[in-house]
């Protein structure tokens, strides 16, 4: 038995070894790219399977997660804009796992991608995978989330102006609470740098507001981890209204955790006394604004994010200059906007 087994193993290894030993010993072909047809191109394009000869190359996109519509919108617009310029975009779901994302980046390198786009699953530990792409000479673009690992080269980044968005959220909160001021709960997600910026901007505006007045200030009474998720937001808010029953405002760093917070308030019968300001402007969030569950959202533009990223890639490959870091400003979206929004019912 063991004999047979090892024989098969050897055959498998042999096949593998054959794969490794190819790769050199190739004739030279010339591809002529100008109109002067001095040398005939050889069979460079014959026998190609899969890739159409029209394609200018492939671009890999490893999304943070495709279970969040925000990232599928980025993916869709990358793909659409890519097709316009003759690039085929491969979309993969990293499922928030650095290891999966690293494997996907490896695959893009293997397939000889013209460029790689990622929403880094971790701003530090994705570094070595990006380094590999750097070493292979393939440009890496980040979208939405940034990478802060040392010694890696990020060719371009397009994201949201999260700090500015946080300030807008702060203004919305002041507007929502009116002259009375009150106690505010922040549903944080400290793991994400983007959320740290949002809360930073939010607090800057609230602090500036408070210095102008003696009383009826807005006080941030708690910052809890809402995980950016509906169930975590629900849990955190349920706990917070036990310890601070008189809170009047909640700032949640995204729509799902805001909706979780709303469910908790509803259960405790406090939905009317607390105003929620969220962030994102996904379809669920917009609907909740229309239904009066959320007061307002600074909304992000994942569609622009996808398009601008692709335009940057095209410019890069064409040897043109482009903004290395583009931060797209958010816009405040209130009930009045939601009532006019044709996307909602």
């Amino acid at each position: 038995m063991i004999q047979n087994q090892s024989r098969w193993m050897w055959m498998a290894l042999l096949v593998a070894a054959l794969g490794c030993s190819r790769g050199s010993g190739v004739d030279v072909a010339v591809s002529v790219n100008d109109d002067n047809d001095a040398t005939t191109p050889t069979a460079a394009r014959e026998g190609t399977s899969g890739v159409t000869s029209e394609s200018k190359g492939i671009i890999g996109f490893s999304a943070l997660t495709l279970t969040n519509p925000f990232f599928t919108i980025i993916a869709d617009h990358l793909t659409e804009e890519g097709a316009k310029h003759g690039y085929e975009v491969i979309v993969d779901d990293a499922n928030r796992d650095v290891k999966s994302q690293s494997e996907q980046i490896d695959t893009y390198i293997t397939r000889g991608a013209a460029a790689i786009v990622i929403n880094p699953c971790d701003r530090l530990s994705i570094g070595p995978a990006i380094k590999k792409a750097n070493d292979a000479g393939i440009p890496v673009f980040t979208s939405d989330l940034q990478c802060v690992a040392e010694d890696v080269k990020i060719t371009g980044h397009v994201g949201t102006d999260n700090f500015g968005g946080g300030k807008l959220a702060g203004e919305a909160m002041i507007e929502a609470l009116g002259e009375a001021g009150g106690k505010v709960l922040v549903l944080h997600f400290e793991q994400a740098q983007s959320c740290v910026l949002r809360v930073g901007g939010f607090k800057e505006v609230i602090d500036a507001y408070n210095t102008e007045r003696e009383e009826e200030k807005i006080e941030v009474v708690a910052e809890l981890d809402g995980g950016g998720l509906r169930d975590e937001g629900f849990k955190a808010t349920s706990a917070a209204i036990q310890s601070d029953p008189d809170i009047t405002g909640i700032f949640a760093i995204n729509d799902p955790s805001a909706l979780g917070a709303y469910a908790a308030l509803e259960q405790a019968g406090k939905a009317d006394q607390v105003k929620i300001v969220a962030f994102d402007g996904q379809i669920d969030g917009k609907q909740a604004i229309k239904d009066g569950k959320i007061y307002a959202d600074p909304i992000q533009f994942p569609d622009r994010m996808g398009r601008i990223t692709m335009q940057n890639i095209v410019k890069y490959l064409n040897g043109e200059d482009f903004e290395q870091i583009t931060l797209i400003p958010t816009e405040l979206y209130r009930k009045a906007d939601a009532d006019k929004d044709p996307e909602l019912n």
């Binding site: 054959l18 794969g19 100008d34 460079a44 695959t107």
Partner: peptide
Amino acid sequence: QVLKPSSYTWPTFLTRGNLLS
């Protein structure tokens, strides 16, 4: 003129880089 080495057909799956990965 742009000159480059000619290509050949071989499974991407069986390239050295991919097997190592």
